[in-house]
């Protein structure tokens, strides 16, 4: 059974992947809800353009997305240099950059899921809440948000799964540095590139399958519980 024991480097890659994915999901969530709201409810000039930009990472080759991120968020890039000079934030070749790449790649999936659930909300309920004295912000917090929660959670799971599996954009943007940017997928790729790395690649593959299954099951359970409360009427 020795071949099943994970080495220290492998553990590092797993922990890093989990952290990168979790941060990517949590940070992109508020923005995802805002964009989904704008796309579902908003009437403004350039809505199709916004929709197109949000969906770009879904259609572009991941390497292209990664390269665009490198150009924009690299230390000398237009956004990256501002972040570095003003806030001291450096994303390129750091795990935070991996989180950004994963967040961007998972963003369209998250927004789609949340947008669909917002469009399914009965606006008459929001009207009723308004006549009972709730301001638009309170209506969103007490009526809309609870009703779209299953969609929000589904979007988070999708985005998390995408982040766990993300490879092309991440490796292009932040490279493959063990302990800093070497995620699970990058580690498996590295194993397959060295002689005798098959066992390591297989161990990490098992871990990847396990994590995906647990995430999927968790989302099913949560969705069922919420669904029972929300979708009966």
């Amino acid at each position: 059974m020795d071949w099943l024991a994970l080495s220290a480097e492998e553990w590092t890659a797993i922990r890093l992947s989990l952290r990168v994915s979790a941060v990517a999901v949590v940070v992109s969530l508020p923005l995802g809800i805002l964009v989904a709201l704008a796309l579902a409810r908003g009437r403004f000039w350039g809505k199709s353009l916004l929709n197109g930009i949000v969906h770009l990472p879904l259609i572009l080759p991941p390497v292209v997305t990664g390269f665009i991120l490198l150009v924009l968020f690299g230390r000398r890039g237009p956004v990256g240099s501002v972040l570095d000079e003003w806030f001291g934030i450096v994303l390129s070749f750091r795990w935070t950059g991996a989180a950004l790449a994963c967040g961007v790649m998972g963003f369209p999936l998250m927004v789609r899921s949340i947008r669909l659930s917002i469009e399914a909300v009965d606006r008459k309920l929001e009207e009723a809440a308004g006549t009972l004295g709730a301001s638009p912000l309170w209506i969103f917090l007490t009526i809309t948000l609870p009703l779209i929660l299953p969609g929000v959670i589904a979007g988070m799971i999708l985005s998390f799964a995408k982040a766990m599996g993300e490879f092309g954009a991440t490796i292009t943007f932040v490279s493959n540095i063990p302990g800093e940017t070497q995620t699970l997928s990058a580690a498996i790729y590295t194993f397959t590139q060295v002689p005798g790395g098959d066992a390591g690649a297989l161990r990490l593959t098992v871990v990847a399958i396990a994590i995906s299954m647990v995430a999927l099951l968790a989302s099913e359970i949560v969705a069922q519980r919420l669904g029972r409360k929300v979708h009966l009427e």
Partner: peptide
């Protein structure tokens, strides 16, 4: 406005 409104359909909050 603090006007109560009873609609044709009850519009109860399902959650």
């Amino acid at each position: 406005r603090r006007f109560g409104y009873v609609f044709q359909e009850a519009r109860l909050f399902p959650h």
